[in-house]
Write a protein that binds this DNA or RNA. Sequence first.
DNA 1: GCACAGGTAGATT
DNA 2: AATCTACCTGTG
Length: 323
Amino acid sequence: MIGDRGQSAGGPSPAGPVRGRPAPSLMWSPWQPLASADPLTAAVLAEILDGGQAFRWHCRADGSWIGAWDSHVARLRLAGDGRLEWSAPAARAAATGPALARYWDAGNPARLLADSLPWRSDAHLARALAAHPGLRILRQPFGETLLGFLCSAAKQIVQIRQMTSLLASRHGRPLLTEPALLAEAPFLSHRLPTWEELAEVAEADLLACRLGFRARYIRGTARWLAAHPGWLAETEALPYPEAKARLAELPGVGPKVADCVLLFGAGRMEAFPVDVWIIAAMARHYGLAGWKPPQIAHFGRTHFGPLAGLAQQYLFAWERRTA
DNA sequence: GCACAGGTAGATT
DNA sequence: AATCTACCTGTG
């Protein structure tokens, strides 16, 4: 249960620091390594958590990150050797551990995945891989990923974060209730609303979340999903081409959003989202100037193979860093 | 003031 | 079928 821990002390550690070392927090589980995660740099960790895959992670002053997905909250940080460590609200850490391993797709070492990309015959890809060792594709909840990318049309990452944050605080169920945790991460006071919950929200209230013309898409998608129970879960289980075609039936979901949802929310590595950054990257480094998005997507899937979406993420990171 | 932003849908060639 | 535009709204 949430919120059943005593709050009379009001602080993380009544005992205070011992000989200069910070006392362990009563609210957070101890830091522990994330099994089989690749060594990372701070820059690559930032690219994974704040590079446009997910929109609910925040970097803190000490360099650690805090974020949420589904009903889970976690902190992440790098140990001295670059290994990733995690910690969760103590009351829920037992459930968060396995959930995080799935979210991180920890069973698939990034190094192995990247090695199966055609970098040996693609000098630019080789360069992008070398620049971001450990970069990986998250395996986020399908429905939340759909919501995030329905917000993404013609918006920058900062603004997508703002929209999802408002949706959560106004229409999602409570997440962090312990005052000490809430004080650390007020933006995680609520989880994202489910599609069932969104179906009950009036379009005017969605507009008030700064969604603009996306409010109509989200409202339409929510109503459609409410009328078709089980449809989303079935779609997630379909092979890539069928899943993409089905997602595109939803209002506001075109080729790019569908590919992002399947790549970041369903682990479909063959999805190759084509956005303005990738259009620029393919024009600059692959001689595809003037190509249309569907042509670029086809080129990407054939040139990069079954893990084209992973290649896309490296190219995307390279392009943003050198822009 | 005005162009532009990690697109999509609908109208118009 | 391919190409153009409007769509909300914050940011520079």
